[in-house]
Design a binder for these strands. Structure first.
Lengths: 136, 136
DNA sequence: CTTAACTGTAACAAAAACTATTACAATTAA
DNA sequence: TTAATTGTAATAGTTTTTGTTACAGTTAAG
């Protein structure tokens, strides 16, 4: 994760969590994060697929949470945006002729999964509500 | 970490750990990982700065561990190569006018540090020796 | 004292990932 | 009917990552 996607997603969800009744539009959210509204809509789209958010089209449209912020964990968010493992990529093309090269990726895979799981377990104990509360 | 640096560094160190007496040259290591020798030397250079490895120039030169593989933890390796936090980058330029934007990065910083620390704590319990043993 | 095999490092190039921007069809409220 | 908005695609620009080439400096060994 050498990108801003987790930060962006948490930012979006925090705003929605603080106005659970309202349909907040992407322009407003984009103004708070200071990025392009289209970027916000892209990320909202992902959060919708995961069932965290629901969108409404047309005039007076926008987005809001699809469930209580108590029911959304930061692990849900991480899971939605993550596109690499915590410890990075494995070796791309290690030599099968070398005893180390032959098995390195298998061993790294074990280590990488365990490390990812550690992070997931920790984040699954943290709710969006807990996080969003700090901004009210 | 959306790169191969941790995998590369562990691969290098595993090879060195399995021949603690020998001066292994960058060509040999590069052959096992299947990358350019100059990339190996770049990473070796970082591992040297951290005191894990020592290099010898000239004919019959190469690298070897500077301490027992029992004394090198995977946290040392991670620390040497990491260039981003586990949960990625914070928001680049959030709006100070919005209650969320104003403080989001401060709150994210707390979360991000705690998550990084979790990973470090876990890796600090794993030695290079334990890892390298699997390949002998 | 010359040669061959290395390291260490810099400079540059290529590829991949990430972020930003523009545009527009489809939808909806008023 | 109009104006505001989503959802999405296409494209461009920027940053990060990976690969390559080159070479001065070092060292072992004949």
């Amino acid at each position: 994760m050498n990108n801003t996607r987790f930060a962006t997603a948490v930012h979006i969800l925090t705003i929605l969590a603080d106005s659970p009744e309202e349909w907040v539009n992407s322009d407003w959210i984009a103004g708070s994060i200071n990025i392009n509204p289209a970027m916000v809509r892209k990320e909202l789209s992902v959060l919708q697929e995961r069932g965290m958010v629901v969108g409404r089209k047309g005039k007076e449209g926008g987005s809001r949470l699809n469930k209580s912020s108590k029911e959304i964990s930061l692990a849900d968010v991480y899971c939605a945006v993550k596109n690499s493992e915590v410890l990075g990529k494995k070796n791309l093309n290690p030599s099968p002729k070398c005893p180390v090269g032959k098995d390195i990726n298998k061993e790294l895979a074990i280590l990488f999964s365990a490390t990812d799981q550690l992070v997931m377990d920790s984040l699954s104990g943290k709710t969006l509500e807990d996080f969003a509360r700090k901004f009210r």
